[in-house]
Write a protein that binds this DNA or RNA. Structure first.
Length: 208
DNA sequence: ACCCAGGGTCATA
DNA sequence: TATGACCATGGG
């Protein structure tokens, strides 16, 4: 069932090549900056960081907070996110080498990431999946909206519930996990954007 | 002039 | 545990 849904999405939208970003640390920065924010705005913020050669954990740690906030202003919540980037960079400096080498179990590193202030479940899973290559499923607003509209899960299903729904019905394959989440976002931005459009969604029947 | 976007934390009851 | 306030820019 999910496999057919995935296949249909892939045929319709093609490979998404996620996550956009030149390095694991840039991906982690994007994961924080995109919280409740349009990616278009995040790109502007990341470009500002690139111009100043700040895609580097040590430099994020040492830069003045107000200066950092000013650079990431286009991404919204800039004061909040400047602090979150610093917390994340601090964690990165201590743990990224081990995480990149996958020397920890997925769940161990996930719990560790979740202790960082400003990193919740979706942000942690995004970093695990796209920066560290762990096959974990990312649940975002689009995923929830789609499943609720099609009565696959109930209204207030937890993040974990939805995550396991996917993981239990998918092969433990990195590429599939990466592609699936990206395809759902592509779907959410187009056909499933409004409720009425969703009723006529070309992919609806693939859930049954 | 609204509304929303690839969330998360904290205070309150 | 469960809501609500708050964070803030840019595009439609």
């Amino acid at each position: 069932m999910l496999q057919k849904f995935y296949d249909a999405l892939l045929v319709h939208f093609g490979h998404q090549n996620w996550w956009p970003g030149d390095s694991p640390f840039e991906i982690a920065i994007g994961a924080v900056l995109t919280q409740n924010t349009n990616w278009n705005n995040v790109e502007k913020a990341i470009n500002n960081l690139k111009k100043n050669k700040l895609i580097d954990a040590q430099k994020i740690i040492s830069i003045d907070s107000e200066k950092l906030a000013e650079l990431i202003r286009p991404s919204g919540y800039f004061n909040l996110k400047a602090d979150r980037l610093k917390y994340m960079a601090d964690w990165w400096h201590k743990n990224a080498e081990i995480a990149l080498a996958q020397q920890w179990e997925l769940n161990h590193i996930r719990e560790d990431l979740l202790k960082v202030k400003g990193i919740g479940e979706e942000t942690a899973d995004s970093i695990l999946l796209y920066a560290f290559d762990y096959p974990t499923f990312v649940v975002d607003a689009y995923t929830r909206r789609f499943l609720v509209r099609h009565n696959v899960v109930h209204e207030k299903a937890s993040y974990t519930e939805i995550k396991y729904f996917f993981e239990n019905h998918l092969p433990h394959d990195l590429a599939v996990h990466r592609e699936f989440h990206a395809l759902i976002v592509a779907l959410g931005k187009t056909f499933c954007k409004t409720s009425s459009q969703c009723e006529n969604c070309c992919l609806k029947w693939h859930l049954n």
